[in-house]
Amino acid sequence: MTTSAEDHAAPAPPRRAALLTGLALTAGTLAAGATAGCSAPRTSRPHDLTTPPAAPSAPPTATRGASAPAPAPRRYPGRPAEITNGPRTHPSRVALTFHGQGDPAVAKAVLGEAEKAGARVTVLAVGTWLDEYPDIARRILDGGHDLGNHTLRHLDINAMTETEAAAEIRGCADRLRRLTGSIGTWFRPSRSPRASPLVQRLARDAGYPHTLSYDVDSLDYTSPGSAAVTRKVLAEVRPGSVVSLHFGYAGTVAALPGLLHELDRRGLGAVTTTELLS
């Protein structure tokens, strides 16, 4: 579907209008470091695939300490190796999934807005992002959200050799385990909506029974504007949908209040992917 940043969205509900405007302005100043979307591979420098950054030698200060470990991946009998959506028979649930990278202030704004609306989301974090902002892992989990693995460096994992791809999956899993006590609830491939058969196998070997794809792509990483993001998702979402979104984009932050309001009006609660499949 082709969208345009010049199109107009429906007016935001009065009680959210001020917050939407404030978030849009805040995100606009922070989106300069936004990441590219996963469906648009980039060319890596030669050393990107041969010298992964070393993991921190000691647990960062954000480690959960005495807290219970974060949830671990679960096996869903009868579900495919790669999950694109939840049950269509449950009429009231969808999962909003966010690719975790970019300015943490934008990420925290997204999480805060979701929580104010009573929504819970799934965050697939990039390992090097966790290295740079280790406290974000606890922030995500303490908000009641899912936290998963989106590879170590967010490169085109389907184009890698077996050794390289395994290092990307396990590198992020190691960081999640160090920060939370678990490798995370889900694995999603980087730079592609779907995992190759090799990457699916490597993910299983690393402890992820299923890879997580999606059936609705917001295309927010193309920066089409909040109206286009909202319109794209609402045109395609249905019960059981898994929606792909990204941290770090002004349009995503600005779209979220109105998007959550309209999902609620349709009777579709935004839950974690784990809840969606429960």
Rank of each mutant, 00 (worst) to 15 (best):
R45N: 14
L219V: 11
H47E: 06
T43E: 11
G148A: 04
G28P: 02
L268W: 07
A95I: 03
L96Q: 00
V123D: 03
D103A: 10
Y214L: 11
L111K: 02
D220G: 01
T273W: 03
R266A: 08
S192N: 11
L25P: 03
L260V: 08
G102V: 14
P80M: 00
S39Q: 02
R42C: 09
S4R: 12
D220I: 04
R64Q: 06
A10H: 05
A105S: 11
A70W: 10
T230R: 13
R88D: 15
A9P: 06
L276H: 12
A107G: 10
T273R: 12
R138S: 15
L219P: 00
L124Q: 10
V126D: 09
S192Q: 10
G240A: 15
A24Y: 01
T21A: 12
T43K: 12
D220R: 06
S226G: 03
D7Q: 15
D135W: 02
P46K: 06
A10L: 06
G269I: 09
R231E: 10
V243M: 13
L147I: 14
D174C: 03
L176K: 09
G78H: 05
L20T: 13
A9W: 02
E168M: 13
G269T: 14
G171Y: 05
A54P: 07
L19C: 07
A167P: 11
S278A: 11
S4K: 05
H99F: 13
A24W: 01
G181W: 02
G207P: 10
V106K: 02
R120Y: 09
G144K: 10
K108D: 08
E236P: 10
A36M: 08
A228E: 01
P257V: 01
D146W: 04
G33M: 08
A40Y: 15
L260A: 09
Y249T: 07
A105D: 14
E164R: 09
P71G: 05
T51P: 15
G251A: 02
K116A: 09
T211E: 12
P52Y: 03
L130E: 04
E6F: 12
G100N: 06
L176D: 04
L155M: 14
D220K: 03
P52D: 05
A31K: 12
G144M: 00
R74S: 12
D48P: 14
N158F: 06
D146V: 05
A58N: 08
P14K: 01
R120D: 01
T128E: 15
T51E: 12
A18T: 15
S241D: 07
A203Q: 08
S92M: 11
Y221N: 05
P46D: 11
P53T: 01
T273S: 03
P197M: 00
R175K: 13
L268Q: 02
L20S: 13
L25G: 09
A119R: 07
L111A: 15
W129T: 02
L277A: 11
A70E: 01
L96R: 00
G225F: 00
R238A: 14
